[in-house]
Nucleic acid binder design. Structure first.
Lengths: 195, 195
DNA sequence: CTCGCTTGTCTAGCGCTGCTAGAATCCAGT
DNA sequence: ACTGGATTCTAGCAGCGCTAGACAAGCGAG
């Protein structure tokens, strides 16, 4: 049975290679450049091999998205853990979120702009996505304010961040004043308990 | 010279037909269904005719976006004009904006998700886009709060609305609580002068 | 009225896309 | 060493955006 196991290991390894290659290619040249042919060439296999791992290109995007969601959750948690108080925590969260979107635009696209075939905001939403939302909620719940549902607050704050991230990256907003927009958002939306 | 003028009129009419047909097709079946072949068939001309009016598909998307921007500006102005006070005005603006995004998803995509080859937030930004932003600013400037630049406030509020619109439509947010998210945004972000 | 020329339109096709059927190859177990 | 099943490849389909070059239509000049 050891032979079979080795083959399975190699298969899993190749699958990781596909996802990593797709991500790298997307990050370097944009998702438009990620074609099944190019991807196959990079991993040094023929096109149909991709389809023995994924149903199609959509599922490859989805795999990159899940990987990215886990990283984003970690980035947000790392940033908020170091912050001393609620206000600083929210500010750190906002900066970390937008920083992630800026540093990994292709991953951010896979998560929120492209169709990766993933279910969102549902029972069967994949764990990494739920966890990324949870990471936001952990730091946002404490500043939701009395009488405001933490989940609803998190959704709204997240939407605002997402809007900033999307519009900035698409050139719809001049990037120079990004910090001041973040400050505005944090100061107004978050309800910080009196010291 | 009258013959020439008639021809120009007919050409302009055909151009309107192309844009209207593209928009309708996108609204009914999504932008993926808007292919140059299908579009050409619908207007009962051959494919190359499209390229005598537009440089490519991107420019057709851009034309739909400009048309949509004008309509959105009008919708926002109509909604805010009827509102009695600043707080109601902002709430009406938010509802009108999100309502537009919901009712005309293809147009909203053309404006903000697809590449229509348009310049945003620049000197040479087309007038309809500038005007749509101006329409938002007209009602938002009065609630920016002292010491907050109205332009910056408009950008931030707009980004928040855009985030809600995008995430809701993509299934990333459950749509039931949309009204409460809007209320949260309006109540927290807008600074309403004491009565 | 006819000719020649510009202007407009169409047919056909290029290179690319995601995806797949069926041939070919490799390799483990007897 | 052979055979059967798993694996991988070659080749190709239909559709995409876009365009070159053939063709037709309609104008002004003679």
């Amino acid at each position: 049975m050891s032979v079979h196991e080795r083959k399975q290991r190699e298969r899993a390894e190749r699958e990781r290679l596909i996802v990593a290659t797709a991500r790298e290619l997307a990050e370097r040249q944009g998702w438009d450049a990620v074609t099944t042919r190019r991807l196959a060439e990079r991993i040094e296999y023929s096109q149909p091999v991709l389809y023995s791992h994924f149903r199609g290109k959509r599922e490859i995007i989805g795999a990159v998205a899940l990987e990215g969601a886990a990283e984003m959750a970690a980035a947000v948690r790392a940033a908020t853990a170091a912050a001393p108080g609620p206000r600083e925590r929210v500010a750190a969260l906002a900066r970390a979120y937008l920083d992630f979107a800026t540093r990994h635009p292709a991953v951010y696209d896979a998560l929120f702009h492209l169709d990766g075939g993933l279910a969102y905001a549902r029972e069967d939403t994949p764990a990494p996505l739920k966890d990324a939302f949870a990471a936001l909620r952990e730091s946002l719940a404490e500043v939701a304010g009395d009488g405001t549902d933490p989940g609803l607050f998190t959704e709204t704050f997240w939407a605002a961040l997402h809007g900033l991230a999307t519009l900035t990256r698409a050139g719809r907003l001049p990037p120079e004043l990004a910090d001041r927009r973040i400050a505005l958002l944090v100061d107004r939306l978050a309800v910080v308990p009196a010291p």
